[in-house]
Design a protein around this nucleic acid. Structure first.
Lengths: 223, 223
DNA sequence: CGAACCCATTTTGTATACAATAAGCTGATC
DNA sequence: GATCAGCTTATTGTATACAAAATGGGTTCG
């Protein structure tokens, strides 16, 4: 945690996201240790964290392997996220505060500005503000367990490469959803909030799924 | 995992459930090591697992502490379980097999027999069969992620001492729910399955909550 | 020619030793 | 008398050494 363990976690995670370690590949603790410049002890801690994040899979006495992901997995992931975030939004509608609404409004405006200015880093701004928006809503739900579960799911969607696949149209619609979610929260309408949030996640999945079509066909042709 | 780590995990978990380690108490790795008869290395692995199970809370460079639980936590836990198991039941209705129905039927009958015979271990039988029933349904849902999340939640409800609080009436109603869930699955009716499963979990919560009333009132009087 | 067994090597699991950091306590100073 | 500094001790974090287990390859036997 304090230094070596955290460093190892970040480094291995980075390599996994970069694709240096391929799905199914076995990760040797000694190799990772020399790669990260630390001993095996913090490496083992890092691998355990990555396993609980479902980035890798550990088999006792056999080693740890990079997770192999399927199309079915992606759909599963989004469905769970849609359900849990919908639930979070419903709870948030009952517990929303003026301060939270103000913060949501600021983030939503930030996305609007970034998208209209068409600057170089509009996507980074979107991703950052989007993360904040969802964090605020999940925070309003007031369940640490729920927060952890959703954190795990969003982490997993990162490793599946579901980001950077959205068109400008997708991003604009996404932010319109944000505005509607905020309206539902302000109205204290839990069912509305839940429904629009569920739609929001499903729409994101379809955007991703559309962009992925070629790769899917390639994969399936091999079988 | 293989031996020492697993032993340490089970031993510490056992002590936590027994209440030997009190909520908020700090757990010293060295003490646990001598208690379990292993070195600190597997102890640290065990503590990490227990932390991801939310049995303990780890603060970097400060130590690990037994989780402190509140009434709000219990309600939160059951609400999440109700939602997730309801979702699992809905998915199960679409994917149910004849074999699974047969196994469900056997477990339900096992509970009926145990409850009607009033034997000494009817509660153990109930708990075991109940676990099987829920495992079968979650398995039918076909989502490893969902299975893991629910496993974590049920583990947590164990540490909160939510078992051994149910009356005979509660257990009988519970098994009637099981029968109705099975009927919904056989009919392939996802909405019915989801609704009755959600009710099933909420009923369990109210049973538990009722038995807990005195303790709750004591707690609240202090504030 | 194939399969199974045994040995060498690699890799994971555990123990111990060491380093770094935090908590507690004594004593000095204001 | 209280507070803060510095030291001592206790505890966590990391490295290394050792033990157990698994993989892989080669040989032998059917």
């Amino acid at each position: 945690m304090s230094k070596a363990s955290e460093k190892a976690y970040r480094e291995i995670r980075e390599q996994l996201l970069r694709g240096t370690f391929k799905p199914g590949e076995r990760l040797i603790e000694d190799d990772l240790a020399s790669l990260c410049g630390v001993s095996r002890t913090p490496i083992r801690e890092a691998l355990r964290r990555l396993a609980s994040d479902m980035f890798v899979r550990q088999i006792p006495n056999h080693g740890t392997f990079v997770i192999e992901t399927s199309e079915h997995d992606v759909e599963d992931l989004f469905e769970l996220r849609a359900m849990l975030e919908g639930y979070a939004a419903a709870r948030a509608a009952h517990r929303v505060t003026a301060d939270a609404l103000a913060r949501l409004n600021e983030e939503i405006a930030r996305i609007d500005r970034a998208l209209s200015m068409q600057g170089a880093y509009y996507l980074d701004t979107f991703l950052d503000a989007n993360r904040s928006i969802h964090a605020i809503i999940i925070g309003l739900a007031g369940s640490e367990r729920l927060r952890l579960m959703l954190h795990s799911l969003t982490e997993q969607s990162v490793v599946l490469g579901t980001l950077h696949r959205y068109s400008m149209e997708d991003l604009k619609r996404s932010n319109e959803h944000h505005k509607e979610i905020m309206a539902a929260l302000r109205a204290g309408d839990a069912i509305w909030a839940q429904a629009i949030m569920t739609a929001h996640i499903h729409a994101a999945f379809r955007s991703f799924s559309r962009g992925e079509d070629d790769a899917v066909q390639d994969k399936e042709r091999k079988d």
